[in-house]
């Protein structure tokens, strides 16, 4: 990846973060199974972590450089490397011991292409880690999300409500149909399997829940329940308590994009969750995006 000439000089990236818990929260949100390979992509804009499942589900966590208290990027091109997501999160977790709110330093690459982590919040103790990296797969990961029409078809819903709805749909399971219709403006989740369950979000009935709605034509697509579930099931409860909105957009061909926001702001000395509901600079937010491919079985193909 990085040429040998660069190695002897400065590493591709040295950065420091003062809220490891925020990063753990963000990465945990995309941890939907035990063993997941993740690809990290470094650039002058920040770090992107990408995970994927069976060509049908992809998640990206954007950690912009503004989240970091120090961000020194000196690579050419965009270095990419693979790590085990579970191991990375478990490792980061050991850096956020309560009452131990230190700064953590990341460096890539180490002498043996490792990702190096180090926390030195006091002279008398330090925590360090070296994570072995892999060469990532060469296939393009991009899901090529394109808007479905002239106006994007999207809605924004409170994260907790979305999670609750998707959790409830576990009972019918298997396949979930999401329908947006402009008149009356509403979103419908419908599960058919062991039984039928339909959950409606009516825009005018409950504007606290459904905070934004954009749709000029009725669209309807089905998604595999397990992939839909992955988009909300692992969001940490602290993030659900924040209860920002999650934005869902349906693109061309029914590709579903789910976006969440996770605060990576340094917790103030009072309690975190109370404060984080109030205003926080947008720069201290990690963006999380899921892309879910629609199911293309005979029925839906026939519909369109």
């Amino acid at each position: 990846m990085s040429s040998s000439g660069v190695e002897t000089e400065s590493p591709d990236l040295i950065c420091e973060l003062d809220n490891v818990q925020g990063m753990v929260d963000a990465l945990t949100s995309v941890r939907w199974k035990r063993h997941q390979d993740a690809v990290l992509e470094l650039s002058e804009h920040g770090i992107v972590l990408i995970v994927e499942d069976t060509g049908c589900l992809q998640a990206k966590v954007y950690l912009q450089r503004e989240l970091f208290v120090r961000y020194e990027y000196s690579a050419h091109g965009r270095p990419r490397f693979g790590v085990s997501l579970g191991l990375f999160v478990d490792c980061l977790n050991t850096f956020c011991i309560p009452g131990h709110s230190g700064t953590i330093e990341f460096q890539y690459p180490g002498p043996d292409m490792q990702l190096l982590l180090k926390s030195t919040d006091s002279l008398s103790s330090c925590t360090y880690a070296e994570i072995r990296t892999r060469i990532p797969d060469t296939i393009s990961w991009d899901y090529n999300f394109e808007p479905a029409g002239s106006t994007p078809i999207s809605f924004t819903v409170k994260s907790s409500a979305l999670k609750e709805a998707i959790d409830d749909l576990e009972w019918p399971g298997s396949s979930i149909q999401i329908t947006l219709q402009p008149n009356p403006p509403s979103v419908t989740f419908k599960g058919e399997g062991h039984g039928d369950l339909q959950i409606d979000f009516m825009y005018y009935a409950n504007m606290d829940l459904l905070t934004a709605f954009n749709c000029d034509q009725t669209v309807s697509h089905s998604y595999k329940y397990k992939f839909l579930r992955a988009t909300t099931s692992n969001i940490p409860s602290s993030v659900i308590k924040d209860n920002r909105g999650s934005k869902l957009t349906i693109g061309r061909g029914g590709m579903l994009k789910v976006q969440h926001l996770v605060s990576v702001a340094r917790p103030s000395n009072s309690h975190t969750h109370v404060d984080s509901v109030s205003y926080q600079p947008p720069s201290r937010i990690a963006y999380i995006e899921f892309f879910v491919k629609p199911q293309v079985d005979e029925e839906t193909a026939y519909d369109s």
């Binding site: 191991l87 050991t94 002279l123 103790s125 330090c126 925590t127 880690a129 070296e130 994570i131």
Partner: peptide, 13 residues
């Protein structure tokens, strides 16, 4: 392990 080295040092005890 083969994938990770994780450690902590406490000094001046």
């Amino acid at each position: 392990t083969s994938l990770i080295t994780l450690g902590a040092e406490f000094r001046k005890l």
